[in-house]
Amino acid sequence: MTEMTYRDALRQALRDAMTEDDRVFVMGEEVGRYGGAYGVTKGLYEEFGADRLLDTPISEPAIVGAAVGAAMAGLIPVAELMYVDFIGMTMDQLGNQAAKIRYMFGGQIGVPMVLRTQGGTGRSAGAQHSQSLEAYVMHTPGLRLAMPATVADAYHLLRGALRQPDPVVFIEHKALYTLKEEVDLSAPVPDWGKAAIRRQGDDLVIVTYSRQLHHVMKAAEELSREGFEVTVIDLRTLNPLDFDTIRTEVERVGKAMVVSEGVMTAGVAAELAARISEECFDYLREPVIRVAGEDIPISVSVELETNSVPTPAFVREIAERVMA
């Protein structure tokens, strides 16, 4: 067991992948000499050199588009978008190019690239640097989507993403970089595309991912002291979506809640709740409740920012009411 941070685990995953396969390279704004805006690639420039850590100008559409071309030409690019909020600028390259190339070219070629980025609230970074835009990605057929919540998953999911034949958008959470956990990177881990059951109980199933896992676990621990036992499912990847794990647990327990930081309307929580309602209808004793981000932009004000997304206290309160 080693103690490491989420940030260190991501760096280790990049280091190991780059060591194993010289086709793997990183490109993006400030990824090289600077070491990444959130320090993820710190030291890799010195270790692997400027050819493997490409500092780019501030040109997001070209960063993503160049990664698409590099992947088609046989390299394995890890492109970095400094903030997921910039994904809108790159949506043509991501949604019209990366996502569709295999299909519209009749399966001749895939785009095995990883787009690393980070999102979420927690730094008073304002409306254009605090969003949770995973729904844009999940809504686009052809893209895979991974969102690690734990230190071990930061490592394993990134390694897994780099083994995928299709483009993977890999969204980290800015509030998790300093998360420190004891990890054994050689221990068996769930397969790519498999959700993790973080705790198991008979009273309620909560499906979540990314930073909200920690809010949910905190709520579940408190509720356990009051005699409520909650199953907590961490999706790890949203595409592929491990619905089998969700179905098994929801059919067993009969109550489900979905927790997401992204906005409520037409978001990931909406998709999950709809699917649970459709597929597990006969087993549900309560409506599937969505706890998600408010349908508003994120404010710079700390108080408004904090209350724009689910807080541990809110998750706990709603879970308790659903079980009551």
Binding site: G126, A127, Q128, P297, S299, V300, S301, L304
Partner: peptide, 8 residues
């Protein structure tokens, strides 16, 4: 009104 901040 405290919604934008330095960058907005």
């Amino acid at each position: 009104s405290g919604k934008g901040g330095s960058m907005h």
